[in-house]
């Protein structure tokens, strides 16, 4: 317990250093662009495949679950849309990104730590925490919401493919369901929590990477830890935000 508090304190102190004024805006700008490219393009393929398949599966499951003629078939489109907007696109995609981006960030920064590259930055008078971490956080805050919106569209599209090519559901029913009782607030809620998740996905692995000590073995451990802790944090924050915003 005491150790957890120690880590949380150290994490916030690090964040304090991360958000100091940059030494050189031009270099930071370039870093942000690089990070956005690697975050965005690097995750697009994975997110596309997962969203399409999950959209299809959720749709099939809902069709299969409806066995009463009293429930209209357009419910299927509604259910797929709601599950993607509210939970699958923001939370599940961010959990997946926590695995992919998180381990990446933590091992990248961890390697820089143990090969003294961070010391080399510091000796040049560069605020290494800010230079290495803040472009990643900024890039994630911009890119990940876009990825989540993209995932919403693809998920719903995956469901539509099922509707169009199966006998038990028609594309028209599905499309009608998609538009039925649409609430903009749900999208805002989803994007709002995505911002929190984007921050978690980048800052927690950065913390673990930054304080890696030892050798290659420890880099592996930090990256595992960062995935575990960022996933747990996402789930807890998700619960809290949902409680606050939707009830």
């Amino acid at each position: 317990m005491l150790k957890a508090l120690h880590h949380i304190g150290k994490y916030f102190i690090l964040l304090g250093r991360v958000f100091k004024k940059p030494d050189n805006f031009k270099l930071y700008g370039r870093q942000i662009i690089n990070e956005m490219a690697s975050l965005g393009l690097g995750s697009l393929g994975l997110i596309s495949i997962i969203s399409l398949f999950m959209g299809a599966v959720v749709t099939i499951q809902t069709v299969a679950a409806i066995d009463s003629p009293l429930i209209p078939l357009y419910t299927v489109g509604y259910a797929t849309r709601q599950s993607f907007i509210l939970e699958l696109a923001p939370t599940i995609m961010c959990l997946i990104l926590a695995g992919k981006i998180g381990s990446n960030i933590s091992s990248e920064i961890g390697t820089m730590r143990i090969t003294e590259q961070i010391d080399a930055l510091e000796i040049m008078g560069v605020n290494s925490a800010s230079y290495l971490i803040s472009p990643k956080i900024t890039a994630a805050l911009v890119t990940i919401p876009i990825i989540v919106i993209y995932s919403m569209f693809l998920g719903v599209f995956g469901g539509w493919l099922v509707g169009a090519y199966s006998s038990s559901l028609s594309a028209e029913d599905y499309l009608y369901g998609l538009r039925w009782d649409f609430k903009t607030f749900h999208v805002i809620y989803a994007l709002f929590k995505t911002l929190f998740f984007a921050f978690i996905i980048t800052s927690i692995p950065s913390y673990h990477g930054y304080y890696t000590r030892g050798g290659a073995l420890e880099i592996g451990k930090s990256s595992t830890k960062s995935v575990v802790y960022s996933s747990i944090t996402i789930l807890v924050v998700n619960y809290i935000l949902t409680q606050l915003l939707l009830l």
Partner: peptide, 20 residues
């Protein structure tokens, strides 16, 4: 103030520590 001094320091690290 430390930063000003550090700009006058060059350091070659044990493992070179080049930005890879």
């Amino acid at each position: 103030q430390r930063k000003e001094v550090r700009k006058e320091i060059g350091m070659l690290f044990q493992g070179s520590a080049l930005f890879d």
